[in-house]
Structure formats: C-alpha cells, structure tokens
Computed example of a mutant assay.
Amino acid sequence: MTFIEFKKKLLDAEISLPKFSKLIQVSEKNLQSYKKKGEVPNAIAVAVTCFAHMQNEGIDYRKIIENLELKAKTKKGAGFAKTKRKETVLKK
C-alpha cells in the first residue's frame, strides 16, 4: 500500500495519523518515515484497511484495540546513550 493510499484509508477510518499512532502504539515519527519510502508495511496496511472497513460497518474499532492494552516498544542496546559514560583510559 502506498503512503497516499494509507492516508486515504485513515480518512475512511475517520482517524488522524497522530491518533492512529497512539492507538496502535507506534511512534508517529516511525509512521511518517514511510512517506519517504513511498509505502507502508503490510501489517500497517492491514490494520488501517480493517479500521476503515469497521468504521464503514459502524463498529467501534477504537475500543477493541484499546482493550488489547498494547505497549509501545522501546529501543534497547544500539544507539546513543542518554547519559554520557565515563571513558576508560588505557595505561601503558
């Protein structure tokens, strides 16, 4: 699914990108990055398509997803540390 199709499905689901992001516990920045790539991952495409269909059928998908109590994933390991570590000086 292209990013443009994704945005149209969000409109069909009557949900904004920030609210969709919060609902599925994926950062908005992550979702916006798909704009550069031109397409969204299959799992995101499936979710937004289901949400749009459920909205069209009068089903409150928001409550269903909220009941899942999804947790946002956090990065572990690689990357820059928030606090500076003391550098070890090697003695010769």
Rank of each mutant, 00 (worst) to 15 (best):
64 I>L: 01
40 V>W: 02
21 S>V: 08
31 L>D: 08
51 F>N: 01
91 K>H: 06
32 Q>W: 14
75 K>A: 12
22 K>T: 15
25 Q>I: 01
82 K>N: 13
29 K>E: 14
68 L>N: 06
22 K>V: 14
4 I>A: 14
8 K>A: 10
49 T>M: 11
27 S>P: 09
85 R>H: 02
32 Q>R: 15
54 M>N: 08
55 Q>H: 06
46 V>K: 05
37 K>M: 13
26 V>D: 01
70 L>Q: 03
25 Q>N: 11
76 K>R: 12
61 Y>V: 00
52 A>Q: 02
48 V>S: 02
57 E>C: 06
58 G>D: 04
24 I>C: 02
15 I>G: 06
66 E>L: 07
53 H>D: 11
72 A>S: 07
22 K>M: 13
52 A>M: 04
63 K>E: 09
11 L>A: 13
1 M>A: 10
75 K>D: 07
67 N>L: 08
83 T>I: 09
54 M>H: 03
37 K>L: 13
57 E>I: 03
22 K>N: 15
51 F>E: 01
29 K>G: 14
41 P>I: 15
69 E>P: 03
60 D>R: 08
19 K>T: 06
38 G>K: 13
49 T>L: 14
84 K>S: 12
2 T>K: 04
63 K>Q: 09
4 I>K: 11
63 K>P: 01
1 M>I: 02
19 K>Q: 12
16 S>V: 04
54 M>T: 00
19 K>V: 06
32 Q>K: 15
75 K>R: 10
62 R>I: 12
71 K>P: 03
